[in-house]
Amino acid sequence: MQLLALSDLHVADRTNRDAIAAIPPHRDDWLILAGDIGETEEHLAWTFETLGAKFARLLWVPGNHELWTTPRAADLRGDAKYRRLVDVCRAYGVSSPEDPYPVWEGKGADGTDTGPCVIAPLFVLYDYSFRPDHVTRDGAVPWAKEHDLVCADEFLLDPHPYPTRDAWCAARCAATEERLAAVDPALPTVLVNHFPLRQEHAWLPSIPRFSIWCGTRRTHDWHQRFRAKVVVSGHLHVRTTRWLDGVRFEEVSLGYSRQWSQSRGAESYLRTIL
């Protein structure tokens, strides 16, 4: 029995879609889907239907792509779009950040217990604070534009009813901290968020100034405050394993079809968390 994770499936890409469909059954395993499944409700539903038949349980957190307001769903934006995706999760029996945190009671291959451990799917956005100290908030996007970088979120991720993405992020952080603080202090956690929780982990060597769209400094100590065994994230399309303060940080992206080896198949990119 394993707790596995994968993010950034981007199933609008036909190659990715076929590769996800080809993942063989893992009847006893749980799968974390750490955001950026696709851009539409249909992408989410297809993925849940396809993978829900292969895994014992699915858990999902939203990425920025799921939250985009596209021409096909122009009536749904911001928090309303997110709440609709939570409804899709519930229709397929998938755990979301709005549901009670499940407790992992799994056993390793050698029969040893790897639980109990609280699996906490989180929805924490970004607030442009992953920037150098000398760059102001108002100067953050112009700073990225100096390197010809503008995230599509600036046009497609509507924060309604919040006035800014920063304000939405602050509200999500406050609500999430309250929920995490209420977890049994005797239990360790696995924290799952699409965006990295630490600024130094939001490192993209070819486009370093993209970091402003990658997280918030508000979460920098959550791995310690909330007793994390593992922190799972995606978004970067740069698969890594890092250790900090005795905690394992896993970036679990698949990415666009040009960013992974089709000869290996998507199953080989499933990351074992517990």
Score class of each variant (00 low, 15 high):
Leu204Ile: 12
Ala202Leu: 03
Ile119Trp: 02
Lys107Ile: 13
Gly93Lys: 09
Val232Ala: 06
Ser95Thr: 15
Glu251Leu: 05
Ile20Asn: 05
Glu178Asn: 06
Thr70Ala: 04
Ala120Thr: 07
Leu149Lys: 02
Asp99Ile: 09
Thr216Met: 04
Leu157His: 02
Thr69His: 06
Arg77Val: 11
Ala19Asn: 07
Gly63Asp: 04
Gly108Thr: 10
Ala109Val: 08
Ile37His: 05
Tyr256Phe: 14
Arg242Pro: 00
Leu187Cys: 05
Ala171Phe: 02
Ala170Asp: 15
Val252Lys: 08
Val61Ile: 14
Asp153Asn: 09
Thr241Ala: 13
Trp213Ile: 00
Leu33Ala: 04
Asp138Ala: 14
Phe195Leu: 14
Trp46Pro: 04
Asp79Leu: 15
Gly35Met: 05
Pro97Gln: 00
Ala74Gln: 12
Arg90Asp: 12
Leu67Cys: 13
Arg258His: 13
Tyr101Thr: 04
Arg14Asn: 06
Arg84Met: 09
Ala174Cys: 02
Cys151Ser: 12
Tyr269Ser: 06
Thr69Val: 07
Glu251Ala: 05
Thr47His: 10
Trp168Ser: 01
Met1Phe: 05
Asp75Trp: 11
His235Ile: 05
Glu66Arg: 06
Val192Gln: 03
Val183Glu: 10
Arg271Gly: 00
Gln224Ser: 12
Gly78Ser: 05
Pro163Phe: 14
Leu3Ser: 03
His223Gly: 04
